[in-house]
C-alpha cells in the first residue's frame, strides 16, 4: 500500500515520455508531473521518494542534486537518458528511454526501498539520540524521549528492509549522505 512518502515526481518536457512512464508507475505509487526543471524544484518536498529526470529537460540538473542536499531531502534520483555522463554517474539509477515500459517499474521499486531505508535510518538515529535524555531536556525540545519499544520496533523494520537490499545499495544509502550535517 502506498504511504504518504512514496510519491514519484516525473520531470520531462516530452509529453509522450511523461505519459509512457506515468502509465507504468501510477498504479503503484502517487505520481506528480513537472514539465520544467523549475517546476520540478518547486514540487520537491518530504512526500517525494523518487524523482525521474529526463536528460532533455532544459536547465542545470545539478540544481536538483543541490536542492536535495540543501533541503535535507532523501528522494532518489532516476536519470532518464544515456548511461554515461556526469549526471548519470551522480544519479542513483539510470533508465534508458527506450526501456521505460519494461524496466521502469523494477528500477523505481528498488529506489523506493532505498528511499524508505534512508528515511528510517534517519528516524532511528533521531530517536536513538533522544533516548536517555531526561524529561526536562525533552520538554524543552518539545519532543518526548524515545522508548526502547519504539526503537526496537524501528530496528526490526530496518532489518526487514535491508534484507531486501544488496550490500552495495545498503551501504550506499547508509553512507551516501555524509555531506549533510549532524542534527
Amino acid at each position: 500500500m502506498a504511504s504518504t512518502q512514496d510519491a514519484v515526481l516525473v520531470a520531462s518536457p516530452e509529453e509522450e515520455q511523461r505519459l509512457s512512464i506515468t502509465s507504468v508507475l501510477r498504479d503503484h505509487w502517487p505520481v506528480r508531473i513537472a514539465t520544467t526543471l523549475d517546476g520540478a524544484l518547486d514540487s520537491l518536498d518530504d512526500s517525494i521518494a523518487v524523482t525521474v529526470i529526463d536528460e532533455s529537460i532544459e536547465g542545470a540538473p545539478s540544481d536538483l542534486f543541490a536542492a536535495r542536499l540543501e533541503n535535507e531531502l532523501s528522494f532518489q534520483i532516476l536519470w532518464l537518458g544515456a548511461s554515461e555522463g556526469p549526471f548519470a554517474d551522480r544519479a542513483e539509477a539510470v533508465l534508458d528511454p527506450a526501456r521505460v515500459e519494461d524496466q521502469s517499474l523494477t528500477i523505481v521499486d528498488r529506489l523506493q526501498r532505498r528511499a524508505r531505508y534512508d528515511r528510517l535510518l534517519t528516524r532511528f538515529y533521531e530517536l536513538a539520540r533522544r533516548r536517555g535524555r531526561d524529561d526536562e531536556e525533552s520538554t524543552a525540545e518539545g519532543k518526548p524521549a524515545a522508548t526502547d519499544a519504539e526503537l526496537d520496533s524501528l530496528k526490526r523494520e530496518l532489518d526487514e528492509i535491508v534484507a531486501e537490499l544488496d550490500d552495495e545499495d545498503a551501504f550506499e544509502v547508509a553512507l551516501g549522505d555524509r555531506q549533510t550535517v549532524d542534527r
Partner: peptide, 20 residues
C-alpha cells in the same frame, strides 16, 4: 574519523548482515 550519525547508519547495515 566519522561522525556518530554516519557510524550509526553504517552499524545498522553491518549488524543486520551479521544476523542474516
Amino acid at each position: 574519523f566519522e561522525t556518530e550519525r554516519t557510524l550509526h547508519r553504517f552499524l545498522n547495515v553491518l549488524t543486520a548482515r551479521v544476523e542474516q
